[in-house]
Nucleic acid binder design. Structure first.
Lengths: 349, 349
DNA sequence: AACGTTTCTGGAATGCATTCTTGTTTTTGC
DNA sequence: GCAAAAACAAGAATGCATTCCAGAAACGTT
């Protein structure tokens, strides 16, 4: 009976003008009815709603955006979507934003520093209402320029940018988790501990060595540390592990600063015939399926990444609201989860 | 010198009207200059471009979209972004679309059938130019209704929907890979092989049992198969594996139909103290870091998921072009990669 | 009864860029 | 040197919805 929308003809969407004509009222009255304006008589309301139903009318989002000056969309620039940690952040943010009526537009920087700024500018031209950034680099000048001139609220996720840019931040306390991990290793008897760290241009890559230093300072002078910064890539994980194994005095414990680094590290350890938990102790950052299913299970410095995304989205919504408060910074804890991959070093257990 | 954009005042963007006033020409002339229309004198072109540079003018994307009737954006509805396979598909599609000037808007259905149609309708109201769908269910009536009435080209990824919906499709040949895997297991001597399969409402969940049947038909009557369909979730992987282990006659080989299923399966196998490759042979679908780093490495039915995303995007671009050809279906191969997780069954090797 | 309020509604301006139509100016051809 | 053609530019209509302003009708008050 009221089948209406025949998919064959694919009738052009109705406009407000047509609704007004059918209901025999002015366009402005249609708008008033639909936007819940109080100055509307019951009789007219019925007429308009009838016409709306009859024409299957839906307001044009573009026209509304143009008029209202907002698009109800948020841009998310992220270093690498195939990293499960990033994916979880996206999931957390997407749910919060969707429930608030915003849609999330993603752009992947593929860990390419130049794409960060390109994507920010792209989002600017697309007139997003706000930005969430998980940058490939926090220091690239073009990126900072782009942020400074973007004109909409910005939230950085697990990153830190100069305060004058006025960005909110959702970050993890990587140093605390690292401190606990190193303390654990020291207690097990390790005296030479290596940290394969990621990029110094991203907050986690700077915070984790700090946490390690704190633990070592408390442990006394006889514990040696080796820090190998680089990038958060599988290839750096491999190269750094090779370098560690080539030393005359090998570390007895290795900490991988991310899941890609872990993959590279594990591959090289296996290739060298070393058994995790027996020949070398291992800790990684972030829990992925691999960490618990590996034999032995791999200790990790863990965090709630979905929550991180949620918080980032909430910080953005806070700034998008009526008053739009000042930028804030929220710190989310990390916890160290010891597992069988950590054991006393050979000869001391 | 030409610093211009002071971030303090955050000057409102200039409009075409202001450019026209400054250059002392008509708005239409500005438009002509910027859109490369031929009927433009060199002298005016210079005046306009000067004014554009001076005001740092950029056309308003919303106004352009409204006028032109296209948004240069593509919606992507996907079952679950935290699945690395999906993430790769997104990466592949995003790069292709970005290079063609389109942006990719993501909505995550969290494997929730009801969200599929909600997201499609949302994208419709947002006026995306096309849709890429990796649906949670291919058969849900509301979803099919939404596709039928969406009015823009649709491409499904690794899914199959009724032909009358006119969707293009990028799919993998899951049956072929599965056939090769089962053949391999049979050759090793396995006579009772289990397939923990995913949802029957998604193409891979239906194709893989078919491939298995093909291999079994060729193998003769003495090979038994056990197929346990369900969902592509970790919990189904766990439950199905428990069920298999509880049987009086356990299968000697298990095939997990996806990375989440593998995770659940492995967890239960370990819990039961069974060693992969010794007590039971194991095959999984899709390569993830876990498959090669696990000890022993796990055989997999592998495919190029980034390519799958690329092809999906290209199929969409094809339909978005001038003529907009008919929907097409592209099949991308899968390959079986035997690894140490597959060995002859106990007592026969 | 006359005036002030409400309540409701229509019209027009607005946001911004595109494109068609029309009119002017310049160039070309014979 | 003039008609025809081409080049160029202005103005207005268009896409669609929002919102301010003003006018009309209905109501109440003294």
């Amino acid at each position: 009976m009221s089948e209406g929308r025949s998919s064959e003809t694919r009738r052009r969407r109705a406009s407000m003008r047509e609704v007004a004509d059918l209901a025999d009222v002015a366009i402005s009255s249609v708008s008033r009815v639909l936007s819940g304006h109080p100055d509307v008589s019951a009789e007219m309301k019925v007429r308009v709603l009838d016409a709306v139903a009859q024409l299957d009318y839906e307001p044009d989002f573009l026209a509304q955006s143009l008029r209202r000056g907002q698009t109800l969309s948020v841009g998310f620039v992220l270093a690498d979507i195939s990293n499960p940690v990033m994916a979880d952040i996206v999931v957390g943010a997407e749910v919060v934003l969707r429930n608030a009526g915003y849609s999330l537009v993603l752009m992947n920087s593929e860990n390419n520093v130049a794409l960060d700024s390109a994507h920010i500018r792209f989002f600017q031209s697309r007139r997003v209402d706000g930005l969430i950034l998980s940058l490939s680099s926090e220091t690239h000048a073009e990126t900072l320029d782009a942020i400074a001139s973007v004109g909409v609220p910005v939230v950085v996720v697990d990153r830190e940018v100069e305060a004058h840019l006025g960005a909110s931040a959702a970050v993890n306390d990587h140093a605390a988790g690292m401190e606990a991990a190193v303390r654990h290793l020291v207690e097990l008897g390790h005296r030479r501990i290596a940290l394969i760290s990621g990029s110094l241009e991203q907050l986690p890559g700077r915070e984790r060595p700090l946490g390690m230093q704190r633990a070592l300072a408390a442990a006394g002078p006889d514990v040696e540390s080796i820090v190998l910064p680089g990038s958060f890539s599988r290839s750096h994980g491999e190269a750094a592990t090779r370098q560690l194994l080539a030393r005359s005095e090998r570390p007895t414990a290795i900490i991988a600063g991310g899941n890609q680094l872990l993959i590279g590290c594990l591959a090289v350890l296996q290739e060298a015939g070393l058994v995790v938990g027996r020949d070398v102790s291992l800790v990684t950052c972030d829990d992925v399926p691999l960490t618990v299913l590996y034999q032995p299970p791999i200790a990790s410095i863990s965090r709630d990444t979905v929550e991180l995304g949620r918080v980032a989205a909430e910080l953005l919504l806070e700034r998008l609201g009526e008053d739009g408060g000042p930028p804030r910074r929220v710190v989310i804890p990390t916890v160290f989860r010891p597992r069988a991959s950590c054991a006393p070093p050979n000869g001391s257990g």
